Amino acid sequence: MSILRMSAVQAETGYRSRTSIYNAVAAGTFTKPVHIGPRSVGWPSSEVRSINAARIAGKSNEELRILVTALHEKRTQEVA
């Protein structure tokens, strides 16, 4: 699994700003970042791909929230 930094996430998703990504995180339609250092974060590439696929498929915001919840649960299980 690779970790995408902010600039790569912006390029992959089409979001123009950091604020857009963090607004989507706050809205529950994008996964929370993982800490990869004391002052750096990133997103698992598999999660970004899954969310992009759902957006392309025309999923609603509610369906995206369900997907994001499932991705967070999977992330927690993989760590345990």
Rank of each mutant, 00 (worst) to 15 (best):
G37Y: 04
S7N: 04
A54I: 09
S20T: 10
V34I: 11
A8R: 06
S60I: 06
I3L: 05
G37P: 05
E12W: 06
F30N: 03
E63F: 02
R49T: 08
F30I: 00
G37S: 09
L64W: 03
Q10P: 00
H72S: 10
L4K: 04
G14Q: 02
A8L: 02
V79D: 07
I3S: 01
R55M: 13
I66A: 13
K32G: 08
L64N: 09
T76F: 08
N52Y: 00
Y22D: 00
S50Y: 05
Q10I: 10
Y15I: 03
K32S: 11
G28A: 05
S20E: 11
I21G: 06
P44F: 15
R49H: 05
T29N: 08
V41S: 13
R65W: 07
R75V: 12
A27M: 03
L4Q: 02
E47R: 02
S7R: 14
K74D: 15
S50T: 07
L67W: 14
V25I: 13
A8C: 00
A27R: 15
Q77E: 15
I36S: 07
I51L: 08
A11L: 07
A26F: 00
P33T: 07
G58H: 07
L64S: 10
S20M: 09
S20L: 12
I21T: 01
E78M: 14
